[in-house]
Design a protein around this nucleic acid. Structure first.
Lengths: 183, 183
DNA sequence: TCCCTCATGTAAAAGGTTACATGATTTA
DNA sequence: TAAATCATGTAACCTTTTACATGAGGGA
């Protein structure tokens, strides 16, 4: 099973969805930690179904195209559960901005500062999105503290996103300030 | 030009190196933000040479195999310089632990806590490596504050690594604590 | 004796992105 | 009229990983 397969099972364990729904979720906000295009999702759903981990039902809609709504099976739930606590290697970071940063000494400081200000803005935007999500989740009350609640899992994951964006933003600002100091 | 090509140019702009040297550097500590295996590096070096961005000289060694030492050309330096301040999309995070975290509600809390304690240990280790590197860099003195010094670029990049590891470590500890609280 | 380091490559497979393909409805 | 959303697929291409291939020298 591919990691993408588990990503899809993880979404379907929360609620049934079409390939289209899943592709939107794998853009944002779940896209924060795993992304996939529809061209990858549709064949993967077919594979999951062939293995008996999901099933689908065609739902006819008026004035909109028909859709295939996928549901996780018991076998799918069991497979997902087994995977969750299985050891994983820490994620490999693959960050082109950091690669550029490493060669920053070759650049014109003013042009480089602009690059970091741009990224600072991006992370500020992303942070606002996550903060809005946090407010929504906190309205759920005590559920976000219950380890067996899907809201707990979402809340804990979101905290990582918040920390990541805040720290990345601050780092960008700090680098830009260093480059703008023309003393 | 591929991103890997720029990664190699970025290393060769600092000092000439063989494919083998580059492959070690792209494991650690540069591997923090970009990784590559030797099977990817050797063909890429050939491509860079075909484009005139690097050249190589065969260095014979006693009691060790011969090696090809690559040097960046003026054209290579110019290409790299142009790329550094060129806009980039923020990195896409692809973190399997976060994917598991999102499905944490299906897991047994004790088993899940063990997973996070494991990652906490890993990030603590990584942090120690970066802190040692920081000490080495800080010994360079004022150079790490000069935007045109390669040590400045290394220092700034390292700061991001330090922040990343510290925050990831703290988040893992926080998640583990939540899961261990059996009230 | 077996594994690790040094050293350079190629080939096959898997994972991921971009482009091709179609078509209705709604919004600007 | 043009673009966006909904909806599902395939094909070509690029990137990355894993495996194959070879061989000397040093250390456990």
């Amino acid at each position: 099973m591919s990691t993408l397969g588990y990503a899809l099972l993880g979404l379907l364990a929360r609620e049934p969805a079409s390939g289209y729904d899943l592709s939107r979720q794998l853009r944002a906000p779940i896209g924060f930690f795993w992304r996939a295009r529809h061209s990858q999702i549709y064949p993967e759903l077919a594979r999951l179904e062939a293995e008996g981990l999901v099933t689908h039902a065609v739902v006819e809609q008026q004035e909109l195209p028909d859709k295939k709504v996928y549901t996780i099976t018991e076998a799918g739930q069991a497979t997902l559960q087994g995977w969750v606590t299985d050891p994983v290697e820490p994620a490999v970071v693959r960050d082109e901005l950091l690669l550029k940063t490493f060669s920053l000494w070759l650049a014109e400081p003013a042009a480089a500062a602009a690059l970091f200000r741009e990224h600072e803005r991006h992370h500020a935007e992303q942070l606002r999105v996550y903060e809005a999500l946090q407010q929504q989740l906190e309205a759920k009350g005590e559920e976000i503290r219950q380890p067996t609640s899907p809201f707990f899992a979402a809340y804990v994951t979101l905290q990582r996103g918040l920390i990541y964006e805040r720290q990345y933003l601050e780092w960008c600002r700090w680098v830009a300030e260093q480059l703008e100091r023309t003393d």
